[in-house]
Write a protein that binds this DNA or RNA. Structure first.
Lengths: 117, 117
DNA sequence: TGAATATATGAACAACTGTTCATATATTAA
DNA sequence: TTAATATATGAACAGTTGTTCATATATTCA
């Protein structure tokens, strides 16, 4: 650690660093936000927020290939942002939990608020 | 639109699509999540959550160059996730608003919950 | 069984991102 | 003024991502 700026209080900063989540959590969070960073995946979540859906329904709703949707769903699934249920030959996807709903709603509020004036 | 899967109800899907935020909002959200997807920027936010800080303090706390921090801060600033205030020769950064705090807290809860069992 | 439908996966490529290095600008103090 | 400190910016490169295409697997129904 270099001691440069007069505002720096090394002890205080040390204390603050302890309150930053551990690297593993940060990396996991980065992965979650990274999954939420694609237009396609966001649209999928805003659809699933209204009703659980199978892949073909999503395919009908979105303007990308079935392959792209499937890849997107896998990403969301791996981070437990959506969950799956088999129903005969259909695979039904749905939003995992309230956190996920909150995340996209908070973010939507944030971006819409900024453009109202 | 192709009409394939027997579960698809084109009318219903049309109605659901209307409730998906408009493309501009989605794109803006994607940009916000994209900004939150980097370890460095997340650490910055978890530090700023505790106390507003100048760039050198962040430099002291994080293990990246001043340039990298400055670039990261610009990204966060452009999306109104953090705001700036000049104080003499220092530039003080702070979390923009409650939405941002919520976003990182929701995500942290999500990832920590998943690893407790 | 076999054909049809539904979904998943791997490869490949263009596009994008984060970092560092080098340098520019802004502010203060001398 | 000039020197020192604080911050910002542009270029460039390695690494990562999202999509499509081609193909594989799984389930149902005849």
């Amino acid at each position: 650690m270099k001691e440069k700026c007069e505002r720096v209080n090394a002890g205080q900063i040390g204390g603050m660093l302890k309150k930053v989540p551990e690297t593993e959590s940060i990396t996991r969070m980065a992965a979650v936000f990274q999954a939420l960073q694609s237009d396609t995946r966001l649209k999928i979540l805003f659809l699933l927020r209204q009703k659980e859906m199978c892949v073909c329904e999503l395919e009908q709703a979105l303007d990308v290939t079935q392959s792209a949707i499937s890849h997107s769903l896998r990403t969301l699934r791996q981070l437990d942002l959506v969950r799956v249920r088999r129903e005969g030959k259909f695979t039904i996807y749905y939003i995992a939990d309230a956190h996920v709903r909150m995340l996209i709603e908070m973010c939507l509020e944030h971006v819409e608020e900024k453009h109202e004036h």
